[in-house]
Design a protein around this nucleic acid. Structure first.
Lengths: 108, 108
DNA sequence: CTAACGTACAACCAAATGGTTGTAGATGAG
DNA sequence: CTCATCTACAACCATTTGGTTGTACGTTAG
């Protein structure tokens, strides 16, 4: 899923389909590449759950799944939270050392 | 940079080096792959600015750059903000239509 | 000094990526 | 019906990726 967002064309597709859905050929008009290439990008985004397709007549409307974007963001949030947790635990250990005076050394 | 975070081994390395730095060989002990493979992963992370290396004796300590992680998260935040912006503008347009009664159609 | 350790880097390989063209099947407009 | 449009999908290609092994070099321990 991060992989799906790691391509600028795909990020742009997601951005473009956030408000209103667009058909694949309408999207293909925008980018300097073939229809098939855009089709593949959409397929990658779909597999990652970042967009969904809905058929309307002969067109296939692409719409972004904002909840999936939120989920990706939360994954990174969690990395940061882990970091904060580690820093806290380090502070705790320092506090202990100051309190008990045993001065045991790190096992390296 | 999202690409750098799109690999689970690399995400794990970042997580592992958040609190305290680790040498490349210490990291290599953890994963079921060769030292050289881990070295490459670290290189990818370094190019993306997600970790930095610092030499200490014959070891090379890897430490995660929490600010870079924050930056990645903010990039996704912005996607979500764009979405909220679109929704707002759509609401505005609806409000206008209700107000002036001109009922002009979307230019498709 | 010598041996062991940690690193760097090149060469190689299979598989995935991001792109292309071409063909074929649905669907809608006239 | 017929034609243009939209989509799907296969085949192909160059490049990148994620992994391997092997070699060489600097540093530290004994």
């Amino acid at each position: 899923m991060l992989h799906a967002l790691a391509d600028s064309t795909r990020r742009d597709i997601v951005r473009r389909c956030l408000g209103e859905a667009a058909s694949v050929s309408r999207l293909a008009d925008v980018y300097p590449m073939s229809f098939a290439a855009v089709q593949k990008h959409v397929a990658v985004l779909e597999r990652a759950g970042l967009v969904s397709k809905e058929r309307r007549g002969r067109e296939q409307l692409v719409r972004s799944e904002i909840d999936a974007v939120r989920q990706a963001r939360q994954a990174l949030d969690q990395l940061e939270a882990t970091w904060r947790g580690r820093i806290e635990r380090m502070s705790d250990i320092l506090a202990e050392d100051e309190g008990d005076g045993t001065h045991e050394r790190d096992q390296h």
